[in-house]
Every structure is written in C-alpha cells, then in structure tokens.
C-alpha cells in the first residue's frame, strides 16, 4: 500500500520544527510501524537527506523507547500497543498519517521524534525503590505474599516508562507513571517500611520536574500500551493521605 506521511522534523531543541510531507510507497501490511519508517528512511538516505530520527530498541513492546504520537494519539491508534508492535495492516492504502514526538513540558524535543524523558528517571531517583542493600537480605520465601497482592503489584510493575501517559494528559502529568511505582511497592510487604516517605517525595519530585498534577481526565489509561489502570492513582492518593495523617 501507499501512504502519505506528515512527519515532525526538528533539527534540535532550538529549531522551530515543522511537519514535512513524505510518500511511503510499497508498504507491506506485515510491517511494523517502525519498519515502515525504516523504509522511508532508507529512501531518504539514498537521496542524501537526513533520515527521520526516532528512538527504538527492543522492537517488541517492552523497553518503552519507541513512543511517538500517531494521528494525535501517543503510542498510536491501536489500544494496548506500542508503536513498534503496531502493524501496518491496521492502515489502508491511501491513508494520511501524522507523526509527531511526545509533547509535554517535561519532555523537551532533542530531534525530530526523539524527546528527553530523563525527568521520569528523576522521579524514580527520588524514592521509587526499596532500599535493599546487596546481600544480607532474607530468604525469598521468608516473606509470604498473598497471590492477589503479588498479582496486583505485578499489574502495576508492568509500566514500561514510555511516557505516553504524560503526552496524553492535558496537564502533562506523570501521575499514572508515579502511581504505578508507588502501588507496586506499597502493595508488597517489603515496600511498606518506606511507603509513606516514598509517596510524598515521588509526588513532590514529579511536580518539581515540570509535570502537571492529575485532573482526573483519565486520558493516560486510554493510551497506556500496558493497560496500567487509573485505580493506581486512587491508591497513590490513599497512600498520600495516610502519609500525611502520620
């Protein structure tokens, strides 16, 4: 099939950036969206033009690197699917596709579709872990964890840190990302000791990094490729209140 693309091109953080039109020819329905971009890029390189810069690595939906905005939707139109797992069979011949970087105050554009998501790491650095030193920990079975709790922690832990939730949020909030980590660790007995401090410092760091606050729009859950639920935000809020009451 043949497609018309409008792709955001921006040389660097200071460049204004613009949408540029490209024709993608002979696209196979079995290609992934990134393989379609590979095809366009090879054509550009052959002509001596700069290829479109985009982030990617695993190409199997788990590293979280490839997030971009397709037709206005972070991570593209297919529910619960990263861009690298989106296949061209979901488009049809003659379609026009708009491709842009994730947009948020906390994610400055580096080049074309590549953005800086280092602010998400800063949130984790503030307290998104259990402070367990290497060695000197108890046997894995010394702590029994009810299966439901382990499953719930795992549901939250599936977040791939792609940042789609931030780009979808009208406030540019990283609340879903933060809440997922808070929930994972607060649901497990190992993580309870630091739970109160963790929820406070992580929320504070999130706001400090230029992310907005949660306005209950729930756009985040709608675009999340891993189906992380907004219930975790409610859990974060409960943890936050508990911490404040202490």
């Amino acid at each position: 099939m043949n497609l018309t693309l409008y792709v955001w091109r921006q040389k660097g953080p200071k460049d204004a950036g613009r949408l540029v039109r490209y024709e993608a020819k002979d696209v196979s329905p079995d290609m992934s969206f990134l393989e379609m971009l590979d095809l366009v890029n090879e054509g550009l390189v052959r002509k001596g033009d700069d290829p479109i810069a985009f982030d990617h690595d695993c190409r199997e939906g788990i590293c979280g690197m490839c997030a971009q905005v397709i037709n206005g939707i972070p991570q593209g139109p297919q529910k619960k699917t990263t861009v690298c797992q989106l296949h061209m069979r979901h488009f049809k011949n003659g379609d026009t596709i708009y491709i842009e970087p994730l947009r948020a105050r906390a994610f400055p554009v580096i080049r074309d579709l590549v953005v800086d998501r280092g602010s998400l790491d800063k949130i984790i650095q503030s307290g998104g872990y259990i402070s367990a030193h290497t060695g000197g920990v108890p046997d894995g079975n010394a702590i029994l964890i009810p299966k439901d709790d382990a499953d719930r922690a795992m549901d939250a832990a599936e977040c791939i840190g792609c940042g789609a939730c931030v780009a979808a949020c009208p406030n540019g909030s990283a609340m879903l990302f933060t809440a997922a980590k808070v929930t994972q660790l607060a649901t497990l007995p190992q993580g309870r000791t630091e739970a109160a401090r963790r929820v406070c410092v992580m929320t504070e760091e999130m706001l400090g990094q230029g992310f907005g606050n949660c306005g209950n729009h729930y756009e985040c859950q709608a675009v999340c490729p891993k189906d992380i639920k907004v219930q975790f935000i409610a859990k974060l809020n409960r943890e936050f209140i508990k911490a404040r009451l202490k």
Binding site: G140, N141, L144, I145, A150, D151, A153, A157, L188, Q190
Partner: peptide, 20 residues
C-alpha cells in the same frame, strides 16, 4: 539472586499460599 530480587520488590509469581 532470587533473595535479592525479592527484597527489591520484584513481583515474582506466587502460589495461593504466598510462596514463590
């Protein structure tokens, strides 16, 4: 390795009694 990961909060699969 397993003990360390559990201590860090890695949500390994568990059975209904809560064991790994």
């Amino acid at each position: 390795v397993i003990d360390q990961a559990v201590a860090q909060g890695v949500p390994f699969a568990r059975d209904y009694a809560g064991y790994l």
